[in-house]
Design a protein around this nucleic acid. Structure first.
Lengths: 194, 194
DNA sequence: TTTATTGTTGATTGACGAGTCAATAAACTT
DNA sequence: AAGTTTATTGACTCGTCAATCAACAATAAA
């Protein structure tokens, strides 16, 4: 059976399985065996490819972060003008892919991971910084030097909407979240123009 | 040594120690022994009084929630008029007592706990509901039927500001958080009046 | 066809941790 | 004084889990 070039395939399977398992368990208390099993291999193999559980978690984080990043970039690419770009960022943030229960659960737990694991903290900081600078790019033409202020509030609001999604029962509603964030935005912008 | 009436004292000590340890560890991966040690007793005694680790966590949650509730109630008591009351809620939310690193860390982890433990979820839901109704009471006279909309956004914003505090390095800045939340509020209110 | 190299796992190790228990002691009751 | 309740702990059980290892299989390189 052993063909060559398995490494990327297995790694990808493990990353995917990790996100699913964390989402299912709702916590980082997931065993390597569970993850490996879901990914269709032995736990020994998981260790073989990643070396440690922590590395598996970090890889999963990078994956979620890069998925999100790609989606934002894609949406930004199609959008023209500041308003459209801002809306695109919000839409990507709450898109079906990112705002699904399992991803949101994983996200929350990565936040916890960041408290202990410096590399996890770093990754999250990168995400925050990128979001901030994307928002600023859209906001500056519209709000001038009030842009930073608005961007920080909007960033926190986005994170808060994610957080609240965790406690909700029933299917996630990305559209509602986008609406809330857009409402914040327009309120702030109208005010900035005065 | 054994005096009578130790139960409440020991329970209180354990609750306090739990919050400190969770804050320190940045996760729920805290052993009963650690908690008990910090509270100055054996782990067996902790089990004796609480029965299980989960019960200890829940007691700690109730404590934090009730501290917060008391602070809001106290602040509300002194405030007159809708605007003042809203400001009071925000000030209480980000007061030095609630917004300190260790409490924020514990808060985040209780969110995680809520994913697994129904009682924890219930407690968090109670908190959310109470916050919402407090905000609504202040908002309705100012914003009429847009109050609900604003309250939901503001609630999420508060949670988001907490979340972001976790990643920050350095001392927490409650005043800045209040300012951000107030800015949201005034922007929304001005808009509502139109 | 030897000899690496890569893929793969069952079994094992070693550590840690929640919860239990038996035993001891001080205080209260009668 | 004898008996009961409350406080307290060290030692122990039992389970779990991350990480390692020895061994085996298949492909590629020499």
């Amino acid at each position: 059976m052993p063909k060559l070039g398995m490494e990327p395939i297995r790694k990808a399977a493990l990353v995917k399985a990790t996100i699913v398992e964390i989402g299912r368990a709702g916590s980082l208390d997931v065993t390597v065996s569970q993850i490996a099993k879901r990914a269709g291999m032995s736990s020994a193999l998981a260790h073989h490819y990643f070396g440690s559980k922590e590395e598996i978690f970090l890889a999963a984080m990078r994956h979620i972060l890069s998925l999100y990043g790609a989606e934002v970039r894609g949406a930004l690419h199609l959008a023209h003008g500041p308003e459209e770009r801002l809306r695109a960022i919000l839409a990507a943030s709450f898109s079906a892919a990112n705002f699904r229960r399992e991803a949101v659960g994983a996200w929350l737990n990565f936040w916890v991971l960041a408290q202990t694991v410096p590399e996890a903290k770093r990754l999250l900081a990168v995400y925050q910084k990128r979001l901030r600078s994307n928002l600023l790019a859209g906001l500056r033409p519209l709000a001038g030097d009030r842009a930073e202020n608005i961007a920080d509030g909007l960033g926190a609001l986005i994170d808060g909407l994610y957080l609240r999604e965790v406690l909700k029962t029933g299917a996630p509603d990305g559209a509602a979240a986008v609406a809330t964030a857009m409402a914040y935005l327009t309120a702030k912008l109208e005010r900035a123009q005065t």
